[in-house]
Amino acid sequence: MHAALRAILRPLPLAVPSLWLALLVAAPLLVVLVLAFAWPAESVPPIAPPWGAEGPNTEPFALVLEDSFYHAAFAQAALVAAGTAALCLLLGFPMAMGLARARPAWRLPLLMAVLLPFWTGFLPRLGAWIGLLRDEGWVNTVLQSLGLITDPLPLLYSWPALFLGMAHAYLPFAVLPLYASLSRRDPAMEEAAADLGATPWAVFRTVTLPLAAPGAAAAFLLVFIPAAGEYVIPELLGPPGAQLVGRVLWQEFFQNRDWPVAAALAVLLLLALLLPILLFQRLEARR
């Protein structure tokens, strides 16, 4: 009886996460894959399953792979994600450095401050940017009242606004891995460099920066991967020309109600992101 019970209970600790993964990752992925081969239809939901008389629909993949509009959407997403990651690295590096060099008693409060944006909702934060940047927003109002400009600057719905929102949203993803790698280093390393005649700038260039490189690569990928699929920020802050793959996917799904094309886009985005994800995993395994 006891042995039998144990035989049932033993796989349980593994079974729970496996079930979790099956329900929340594998099953939705399978649904998306099925959708990508389904036929559009005038029904609710607006599809006919791929196992009907016509067989699976290869049209959505063919369309997405051939149409230059979708190519441009992927390229733009990659560029915006890379730009965001670069921006986050640039802003995050000094922050992480300050964190790593802060007195131990200060580190926790400062880390909390880095994570503070996560405590408020994502949409209210974007709302705040809209409030700041729109034509009658605070920035334009202040500049006008100071007499620096007469007509409001077109700040909102622009590329700078898009990158501002992206950097703001993804900065913590860069600061945390950078901080982790910078705080692990042996302070004697930098002292040794100085002792051997390196000026503070040379120490930074030849020791601090190269030692932080794996952390920086991890930070870059950790921002790049989620940023590549971002659709809310381009939608709310970006220019109309910012047709990123996430936004296009959203439009196909909700506006055109073309679920198969949206699903094909989702599958291809996932495949495209496998490379940076694998790269990130290799980096982490090496550390």
Partner: peptide
């Protein structure tokens, strides 16, 4: 430190790993 004409060997050796 970088302008002092002396050198130091560290307890942890502090070799540059890269």
């Amino acid at each position: 430190p970088h302008a002092r004409p002396l050198n130091m060997m560290f307890q942890s050796y502090a070799l540059f790993p890269h």
